[in-house]
Amino acid sequence: MRYVVEVHLKPEVSDPEGAAILQAARALGFDFLSDVRVGKSFEIEVKEGTEEKELEVLSDKLLVNPVVETFRIRRDDD
């Protein structure tokens, strides 16, 4: 079983990397973009029967810095 934890900067924290990518993409002629935010994701293989709750605790304690980041957990069924 596999979960994906996606981590992003909180909306109130500015994301200069996203802004730079937006600018570069527009310079290359991709004018359909209105915003870019950069995040990261963790692909986590877990033992059968692991509950999403446990992943939340892991994210809070280790994967995420709650001062500046938020996260979302989803099951990856592929």
């Binding site: 990397e17 802004a19 730079a20």
Partner: peptide, 11 residues
């Protein structure tokens, strides 16, 4: 040189 090399320029 900054602009010449670094395509992703932050501010």
């Amino acid at each position: 040189l900054e602009k010449r090399i670094f395509l992703l320029a932050g501010k």
